[in-house]
């Protein structure tokens, strides 16, 4: 049994609007070091709210109404994420947990070269680094994600969708975090580019050993890449199991519904009356 990286206990988030929306309801979850945990569910099920919530990235009217989040640092120290003050939180984010945002293709600043945007991470989190060191670190990151160091001066619009996505992954990787949260990182890409990016994520994970929370509604994709899958519905995790057991022996009715919603690429026809 691998040890835990993140323990989420009884975590709830409410959007304090009229009427209030309970977006995440009493979620308890233990993330194991080194695994890929798939978080699946349909729009509005709370998967993004949960991922943002554990990093305290939510803004009003979202309110965390209950629960605790403990990050088990590789140094052996336990960080109670909900107890950090603003400065500690700032240091914690991106250093320990980074994120590849939903719609990452459009998350880059269109009027700054990508190299400068990557450098910003080091300016803020590694102020002791010299300019030359930062440049070198950025070049190395661009090499790692196979965009190439010569693209540091390129603007986002000069890159293809897949390359921009790689830049976002480079940014998330910059400080060598222990956890990377990926929110629909490949949804806007076509299947061939998607497959390339997935291959790269898995390769980087081998190399750097980070843990991944992969959020998507694409269950067939999750079944292939995840160690474990959590199925969310209306703010609750209705089922959490290994990918193989979710596939071969789903327990919850909603999981079964989701599974049957995807036509099989090579399996029996007959999902559709035609």
């Amino acid at each position: 049994m691998r040890d835990a990286l993140l323990s989420v206990h009884d975590f709830s988030v409410t959007y304090d609007v009229d009427p209030p929306v309970e977006a995440v309801k009493h979620v308890t979850l233990e993330l194991r070091r080194g695994e890929i945990l798939g978080l699946a569910g349909e729009s509005g099920c709370g998967k993004t709210t949960l991922a943002y919530g554990v990093q305290r990235l939510l803004k009003a009217p979202a309110v965390i109404t209950s629960g605790s989040v403990v990050f088990h640092d590789a140094s052996g120290e336990d960080v109670e994420v909900d107890r950090l003050d603003a400065e500690q939180m700032r240091r914690f984010r991106w250093d320990k947990v980074s994120m590849v945002f939903q719609g990452a293709m459009n998350a880059l600043n269109p009027v700054a070269p990508i190299g400068a945007q990557l450098e910003d991470v080091f300016v803020v989190h590694r102020p002791q680094m010299s300019r030359a060191e930062r440049r070198e670190a950025v070049a190395e990151l661009l090499e790692i994600v196979k965009v190439g160091r010569q693209r540091a001066r390129s603007f986002p619009h000069e890159l293809s969708g897949g390359m921009r996505q790689r830049v976002m992954i480079a940014m998330a990787l910059a400080l060598r975090p222990q956890l990377m949260v990926m929110d629909e990182p490949t949804t806007a890409l076509d299947v061939l580019v998607q497959r390339e990016i997935l291959r790269q994520i898995s390769q980087l994970r081998h190399e750097f050993g980070f843990t991944v929370v992969f959020i998507t509604h694409d269950l067939p994709l999750l079944l292939e890449i995840s160690d474990r899958i959590a199925i969310m519905r209306e703010g609750e995790i209705v089922e959490l199991d290994t990918a193989e057991r979710i596939w071969t022996n789903p327990q919850d009715d909603y999981t079964k519904t989701l599974l049957s919603s995807f036509p099989r690429l090579t399996g029996e026809r007959g999902v559709v009356v035609r």
Binding site: L192, E244, T248, R264, L265, G267
Partner: peptide
């Protein structure tokens, strides 16, 4: 073939993991 290989296919994925018996849903 390339397109097909890139498309998620849990059936084939689990069949290849478990040898002969998997993927028979």
């Amino acid at each position: 073939r390339e397109l097909r290989a890139a498309s998620p296919d849990p059936e084939k994925h689990f069949a290849s993991l478990s040898g002969s018996h998997g993927g028979a849903r």
